[in-house]
């Protein structure tokens, strides 16, 4: 598990790539109980102007949480996470999350992430976390 002394501002966090399956929104709907038709019904997604069904933002945010915790080593170290959703994630997208340490005070660190799809479009902005080591 990473130690305070080994972390410095500017360090990169190991990136995480997620291949979003065709049925990922269905899987997340089942696990979360969020069956909003914009997530599970491609026809409805088109009708409401989204071009198809879209993944739950909280599922993409879970990917970001995983990326942080895979690096932090202990889920209890993650203290804050915030994001702004700017572009929908669609089935069969590939999401790449990269990040770096932007602040450190004692054992408290701050990180910022970028979350992009296969076209390089940011699907979230203002993606920031805080952790205590």
């Amino acid at each position: 598990m990473i130690k305070t002394k080994d972390v410095k501002v500017g360090d990169s966090i190991p990136p995480l790539r997620k291949d979003v399956g065709k049925y990922q929104p269905i899987l997340y709907a089942g696990a979360s109980g969020d069956f909003n038709p914009i997530h599970i019904d491609p026809e409805w997604g088109k009708t409401v102007g989204l071009g198809g069904n879209i993944l739950h933002g909280l599922c993409t945010m879970a990917f970001v949480s995983q990326m942080n915790i895979d690096w932090l080593g202990d889920p209890g170290r993650l203290k804050k996470l915030k994001v702004r959703f700017v572009s929908p994630v669609k089935p069969e997208d590939t999401i790449t999350i990269e990040g770096k340490v932007v602040g450190k005070e004692g054992d408290a660190i701050k990180c910022e992430m970028s979350v992009k799809n296969q076209e390089g479009t940011e699907v979230m902005i203002n993606v920031a976390s805080e952790a205590k080591l």
Partner: peptide, 17 residues
């Protein structure tokens, strides 16, 4: 207006596992 609602932003603060 339910069909027009999208998730804009999300913040979490975690205090206990």
């Amino acid at each position: 207006n339910l069909p027009m609602i999208v998730h804009g932003e999300q913040e979490f603060e975690f205090f206990k596992v």
